[in-house]
């Protein structure tokens, strides 16, 4: 409880700030909506209001500001509007929507759960490919001096390069081969999670010190035995740290990969929302993505804790 107290306070403070910020952010839209509803607003037309600053508008129209938290297509939707949108686009859409279970007998393909699944499947496939190849390359780098000296500097340099910039090109090029759907996004995800895993894993496989390596040498252990019995077990903590970085990067890759081709997914949902001014839709997709990222990282953290416990590492 002593740990939750401060966190809760900070979260509540952020919420309060958010609600306050809604008033100046949405003042134009609020006043327009109030005017349409028949309230008296000063100045009395939208063009004149556009000339006046936000804060003087607020002072002149104090009695209509309560609408700030219920405007549609607000510049900054209030938290409860986002929660309502999340609920509408998940539970309500799946169950009662036009394509929901009640009306069509199957799950809706317009809900956030569907879009989230599209993104999640690309993320997981890409992450599995990227992390797998990353581990393999790391093993190669540790065992071959040539590979270490030629590839490793490039792996490190590539971390400073905004690889995401490649995303639209990868999508289009793969599309011209007739490959579309999950694979192009997974390729981007794989690419983004690849290098963090390589760098972390190389560090991990090199973490046994000279004393331990010498001990295995006195046991007359070969390279294979040294790898399985010493290097691999001691690389596990490093591996999981970089896997957490990698899966977050994979999710970003999948979302960015959905921008050029509008075929479902959270990225498509965000871009669609920004085209049509559906701010609640963007925020809901953003929160959904955030929840997914947190869950994925937590899942890897959980596996890490289990694995380390089974290996007998003191946490």
């Amino acid at each position: 409880m002593t740990k939750a107290g401060p966190i809760l306070t900070v979260v509540l403070a952020i919420m309060a700030l958010w609600y306050v910020a809604c008033i100046p952010m949405n003042v134009q839209e609020t006043l327009t909506a109030a005017e349409r509803a028949g309230a008296v607003v000063t100045p009395d037309n939208a063009r004149a209001r556009a000339e006046v600053g936000r804060f003087s508008l607020m002072l002149q129209n104090t009695d209509t500001l309560a609408g700030s938290w219920s405007v549609e297509r607000a510049r900054l939707p209030a938290p409860h509007q986002i929660v309502a949108e999340l609920w509408d686009s998940t539970w309500t859409e799946e169950v009662y929507g036009r394509r929901g279970i009640v009306n069509s007998g199957s799950l809706s393909n317009k809900s956030l759960i569907y879009h989230g699944w599209v993104t999640l499947s690309a993320t997981v496939v890409g992450f599995a490919i990227g992390a797998g190849l990353g581990v393999l390359l790391a093993v190669g780098i540790v065992h071959s001096k040539t590979m270490d000296m030629s590839v490793m500097p490039w792996a490190i340099v590539s971390q400073t390069i905004p690889i995401v910039a490649l995303a639209p090109m990868i999508i289009v090029v793969l599309y011209s081969f007739g490959i579309q759907g999950l694979i192009p996004k997974a390729v981007i995800s794989a690419y983004l999670s690849f290098f963090p895993v390589v760098v972390g894993m190389v560090k991990g496989l090199r973490s046994p010190d000279a004393m331990q390596l010498d001990l295995l040498h006195t046991y007359n252990a070969g390279q294979g035995a040294t790898f399985w019995k010493l290097r691999l077990p001691s690389s596990v903590p490093y591996l999981f740290t970089s896997l957490k970085v990698g899966i977050a990067a994979s999710l970003v890759g999948a979302i960015v990969g959905e921008l050029p081709v509008q075929r479902g997914g959270l990225g498509a949902r965000m871009l669609g929302g920004s085209y049509y001014g559906q701010t609640e839709q963007i925020w809901a997709a953003l929160f959904f993505a955030a929840g997914m990222a947190a869950l994925l990282v937590a899942l890897i953290g959980w596996i890490e804790a289990r694995t380390l416990k089974r290996m007998g590492v003191q946490a």
Partner: peptide
């Protein structure tokens, strides 16, 4: 750890 690039459409708006 969140995909913060997702705030881009909002901030562009």
């Amino acid at each position: 750890a969140l995909p913060i690039v997702g705030t881009a459409p909002i901030l562009v708006m």
